[in-house]
């Protein structure tokens, strides 16, 4: 999911590189911003998940040890 979003972001960047008209570029910009926000949110969530899993693992470890 996130991979797909990043791919699209890269595509948008390369489209803008080639040059499109202002209307088009504004549309692409809006789309890009939305995608970037979603990506960053996903990445933050991944970080949070790691911390959570780690905490859970350590708790189990303490119980066992």
């Amino acid at each position: 999911m996130i991979e797909k979003d990043i791919k699209r972001l890269e595509e948008i960047a390369s489209l803008l590189e080639k040059g499109v008209n202002l209307d088009e570029s504004l549309k692409l910009y809006e789309e890009g911003c939305k995608l970037a926000k979603a990506c960053l949110k996903e990445l933050e969530k991944a970080k949070g998940k790691i911390i959570m899993v780690k905490k859970e693992f350590n708790e189990k470890d303490e119980q066992n040890g």
Binding site: I6, L9, I12, G32, C39, L43, K47
Partner: peptide, 25 residues
């Protein structure tokens, strides 16, 4: 963590790039 950080930097770079291009235009 390193992968996430890399991806985050990549996404931020991309959006900055896009922003700059749109601003320029």
């Amino acid at each position: 963590n390193a992968t996430i950080n890399d991806e985050t930097i990549h996404v931020v770079d991309l959006i900055n790039n896009i922003e700059r291009k749109v601003e320029n235009q």
